[in-house]
Design a protein around this nucleic acid. Structure first.
Lengths: 209, 209, 209, 209
DNA sequence: TATGAATGAGTGTTCATTCAT
DNA sequence: TATGAATGAACACTCATTCAT
């Protein structure tokens, strides 16, 4: 299950010209810098330096600092959604599908700790993000889960009274908190595997008909 | 179950002198202002105005802006922990205990929307908080849950393989995400009751032996 | 020559009531605090604490912070002038008089390092002092020198072409710079005696007819 | 003897690019503003306005407010030292050398009143300067005098028992006090010429063997 | 007189953003 | 496109001074 290995790279076939490359370079630099210093303590000049461009250049590719954060989130999410779909779509059994989703989510976060920290922790530091951003991509991501729940209900595998719109959030919240713990705790007592097992077992049993 | 109604007030019998009152007034003003504008966009002068004191007065009661946020969190949490304990301690059945805890948590957040927003959203905007603060009170709060889980395991009500340290985080994350939804969503589709039911049923079933 | 020993104390016969005492206590505290931290880095609250009074009390005895500095200067100077006169008046020979004056000045500064630092260094940090203060007392002090010069000229001991108004300043400046050196240099290479000898010899020879 | 006329200007041939110009412009503006209001009462925004740049621009050229003051002092002093050396080095006779030095010093201060005020008065308002700054340039300047004294002693022109390290300070102190008088006194009774003559005669006679 | 809690004016510095080149 | 020098708005915090008690 090393399908996440490319999440940090440009999807093949896209990054052909200088523009795309610079856009990507800045995005990667931003993830690194945000993860290290947090959003508010990250300076545009640091990102520019890390990306090897001039400060002003960043504004040719992004509207402003908040925009960089949102784009990090959206563009990575887009890749993730595509990739997850590819893996999840062929799976028939909703229970198995959910198990795999949780595993994918946690492993991806674990493998991309910088991205994880940015998405789970720093993202909330952007007021614009929390209060103005219309979470299109994020909704799309959450809906991977709600679709699984609905399928499960339809097939009689999951309880009929479940509200997919509620469950998707509860599950995401649970996993996100575990990721934060993994990423921020100085010496985590539990490894990813344990976190995956515990959360998977609890949710699967909790949802089953 | 209206025991939360006093969470915003000073415990009766304490707030007799001006000091306590002013401290409390500033704390309340801060919650209001933080909830409205977010931590980073809140100005000390706004809090002072809202509290009806001079800017400088705030620094007689709090070390700095970060300190206000942390104190909001800690002092309210302390009250909440005390109050929850009073209600939860007499309950024998771990399952029932957990049901009541979820109910208490969600109802409290719902009733104190400003506090909820500060705790769930703005708190993470303080880097000092996220990366330096040793979450004593927060751990204490989470441990209400882990203790219930452990009791449940001991009594054979909850699964033996559960890791209380993982479950407490997963549950808190799930509830927190639902609170954020409730507080930030322009027109939430689900009411608190639904959120409580859905999360309670899922977790109880998920944890049961 | 221990006639300076009382320069830090209230003149006997004055300090009878509480007022005088407190005024004096604050003045002494101020000298200590100014010498240690410099005028601008000294806080009224520090002086109050050192003096053992409340912040507000200081304003019953002094108009403001600048006033304290000026009063330190003036009141101490007044004592010094009186004391110096007592010693210098009986001396007939202008040359001997000047020798004694230099000795008195340097020894006083050496014995009251805190006062020296305040007078020579910190005093200049008060803009009000440098630009608005009418240096009555200071003129009086300088005029001790100009009177000696004039006497010397009259008696034919000092050069006829000397301008007492210029010489008094040159001499004071020279001595003051040596005091600053003595007080601020981490490890002064010269002791007071050397400074006195060198400056005395140079000026006496320089002024002699 | 109009060699001082360029002390306020960049050495010819240097200030070609914008950086040097702006650095210089800010330095000049600072001298003006410091002289007018004193160091502590001068606002960065005033200096910026006077220099015709934005507030922030100042921080591209100077570390902070104290740094401006120190740089004013050091850079001007550097120019002065170089220029004085050029004039003094060819002079053989130590007595004549000292005469010229005093003349140069007083005339320079008289011609650059703003600089004089900053150097003699405001400099001492920077605590960082008085207590932390290692006065390399200033020592260099004072050593112009001690070198003359030493030469004089070697040639038997000045008294053998003179301590150059003491005399240089006494002389500087004397001249500095006269400058302060010249610059701060509302209506000085003496002109520069008189001050030069009086101090020169006194010191030369005082030092002679 | 004495207190000390409260006041609120005052400012150096940062850094996201712009724009002339 | 790319640069990076220049901009200037924004703000937490201090502390001399006041005044109700």
């Amino acid at each position: 299950m090393d399908s996440m290995s490319q999440l940090n790279k440009n999807s093949a076939g896209k990054g052909r010209n200088a523009n795309k490359d610079k856009h990507e370079k800045i995005l990667k630099a931003a993830i690194k810098v945000f993860a290290k210093n947090g959003f508010h303590n990250s300076k545009i000049s640091q990102i520019a330096k890390e990306a090897g461009v001039a400060d002003g250049t960043i504004y040719l590719y992004f509207k402003n600092k908040d925009d960089i954060l949102i784009k990090v989130f959206e563009e990575r999410l887009e890749e993730i959604i595509a990739e997850f779909s590819e893996i999840l779509d062929p799976i028939e059994d909703p229970e198995q599908k959910l198990r795999v989703f949780i595993k994918l989510h946690m492993e991806m976060m674990e493998k991309n700790r910088a991205l994880a920290e940015v998405v789970s922790v720093e993202l909330r530091q952007s007021h614009k993000f929390m209060k103005e951003y219309v979470p299109r991509k994020f909704s799309e991501y959450l809906n991977i889960v709600s679709r699984i729940i609905r399928e499960g209900k339809d097939k009689g595998v999951f309880r009929a009274e479940l509200q997919p719109g509620v469950i998707k959030r509860a599950l995401f919240g649970a996993l996100d908190e575990l990721v934060i713990y993994l990423v921020l705790a100085p010496k985590p007592k539990y490894d990813v595997m344990t976190l995956i097992e515990q959360s998977t077992e609890t949710f699967i049993r909790g949802l089953k008909a």
